[in-house]
Design a protein around this nucleic acid. Structure first.
Lengths: 137, 137
DNA sequence: ACTTGCCCTAAAGTTAACTTCATGAAGTAA
DNA sequence: TTACTTCATGAAGTTAACTTTAGGGCAAGT
């Protein structure tokens, strides 16, 4: 089954512009063209785009994704690079998750604090000791 | 205890420029100045900066942090805004963590795949069915 | 006096990842 | 045929969050 750029955009919730941008940047070299230049996306291109979406969610930069795509087309000689890339990204993501967990604790605390303040009608009931320190309670 | 901008930068691992930028953007209005304009950071400013660092880690935008700081100085009339901000951020962070977890699974799979390929000396031993599909294995 | 090392500002520059703009061609529906 | 939709390109514009540049002040050490 083949798809037009518009169909892919709708299906994967990308903007058409973004898909063309990714194409320009070399992220989807497998996408083919009709005689008059219209892009034709195959099922495997959809899968690739889902994977790209996942890597983007992990915070991987476009240029790293591009490198990976290039390495993939170069065969076994780039296995080490590809391994290193994903090892590095794995560690980066683990660190990110840790930081987000910490931040989440603080944010939940603040959220609860303001919920209680709202119920009380004022912040002054929340164990606030001095005027002007509320930012950090 | 008071600190100069350089001391704060070293202590919290910010660049001096970034601290001045945050000041310009209204994130640390409580920082005072000496007669000739040099910034003087108090202990409470350090704590505020740590909190800002945490919010930044959570992906909160500078302008949202600035809003929060402003609201904090306006008293009980902005309790709802502050509550909404942290509720919204809480949900955003939870979503981020979820996406990162998903991405982490995929990335770990890739990392293991390439580890095995490296050990085998070639990608072709990894159950790869057809040439050219390696990107998605 | 002079050099070093801290501090200051305003403004311009950078980077990533889009996004918009100006323009035009091909295909379809009435 | 005219109108509409979808496709295309290259190039310029946008946004956030810094970062760098260019200028200069003050205080301590030699």
């Amino acid at each position: 089954m083949n798809y037009s750029i518009g169909e892919v955009a709708k299906k994967l919730n990308f903007k058409i512009h973004t898909l063309r941008y990714y194409d320009r940047e070399g992220l989807i070299p497998s996408v083919e063209r009709t005689a008059n230049g219209t892009r034709v996306f195959k099922e495997s291109d959809i899968e690739l785009l889902k994977f790209i979406q996942c890597l983007k969610n992990s915070g991987m930069a476009i240029k790293d994704i591009k490198n990976f795509i290039e390495w993939s087309s170069e065969g076994d000689s780039t296995l080490q690079q590809r391994y290193d890339l994903f090892q590095k990204q794995k560690i980066a993501v683990e660190k990110q998750i840790e930081e987000l967990q910490e931040a989440l604790n603080v944010i939940e605390h603040k959220s609860n604090y303001y919920k209680a303040a709202l119920d009380a009608g004022t912040e002054d009931a929340q164990g606030k000791k001095k005027i002007g320190t509320s930012v950090l309670d």
